[in-house]
Every structure is written in structure tokens, then in C-alpha cells.
Write a protein that binds this DNA or RNA. Structure first.
Length: 110
DNA sequence: CAGGTGACTCTAC
DNA sequence: GGTAGAGCCACCT
């Protein structure tokens, strides 16, 4: 059990996302040491139970909300992002490119 | 063990 | 920028 569960690593990666910032599933997965497991991240979030987990900061590679429009989580995510200063337009997030550029500035070039 | 599903990603048209 | 097809991994029936 010496290894930390991938689940916890993913949660930690999401937790390390600064407020007002957003990240992609693939990005989070890679940061958690699980390249290509973006689907796993999605599953974790769908099963997660932690209300203080900034899951709303996790978006798709297209910078879009990762759920059906009109869904309850969809509205919640959109509202929370706006509350943090993130610009959301038509289910899409603006400034995603800036995030990609700052991704190394946030987590470090390693 | 096989088949189906999902808060995904990539490439091609 | 949108749509379509294939690839991917973990979980459920």
C-alpha cells in the first residue's frame, strides 16, 4: 500500500489548482502521474464526495464544461467559475490558452 | 470472460 | 469551428 492511490493523487492535483484558474482532464491526469487517464479523472469526479474539491475547475480539452448542457452540475460549475473570476461564455471558458501558457508557472517546469 | 458504458482525447474531413 | 471515427482505461452487468 506504499503507493498512494491514483485516486488521491488526482484529487491532490485538482486541489492544487489555484483559484480563478482552470485545468483540463488530461492535464490533471498527467500531473497526477497518470498520462492518458483523463477518463479516470472524469470517473473520479463523478464519484467524488468532497464538496471542498474544486472539481468545477476541471474542464475538457476544448475548454468546455464536461457535461450535458442543462444538467444540474453544469449550472453549478458555470456559476462557481464565474464566482472565481473565470469568464464562461456559451458553455465555453475564455482564457484557456492563458492557462496552458501558465501551466508551467503554476505547477512548475519540473 | 465478454459486452456495454462514460464529467475524455486525438486525428481527419 | 463542427462533425465523425477510432483509441483509451476503469467499472458494471
Amino acid at each position: 500500500m506504499a503507493d498512494v492511490s491514483a485516486n488521491d493523487r488526482i484529487l491532490a492535483a485538482i486541489r492544487s489548482i489555484p483559484r480563478g484558474q482552470v485545468a483540463g482532464y488530461g492535464h490533471v491526469a498527467q500531473r497526477a502521474g497518470l498520462p492518458g487517464r483523463a477518463r479516470l479523472v472524469a470517473r473520479i469526479l463523478s464519484q467524488n464526495d468532497d464538496p471542498r474539491l474544486p472539481w468545477h475547475r476541471v474542464l475538457r480539452s476544448d475548454g468546455r464544461i464536461a457535461m450535458p448542457e442543462g444538467s444540474r452540475g453544469y449550472r453549478e460549475q458555470c456559476q462557481r467559475l464565474r464566482a472565481e473570476g473565470v469568464v464562461v461564455e456559451n458553455g465555453r471558458v475564455r482564457g484557456l490558452a492563458a492557462v496552458k501558457t501558465l501551466d508551467e508557472a503554476i505547477w512548475g517546469p519540473s
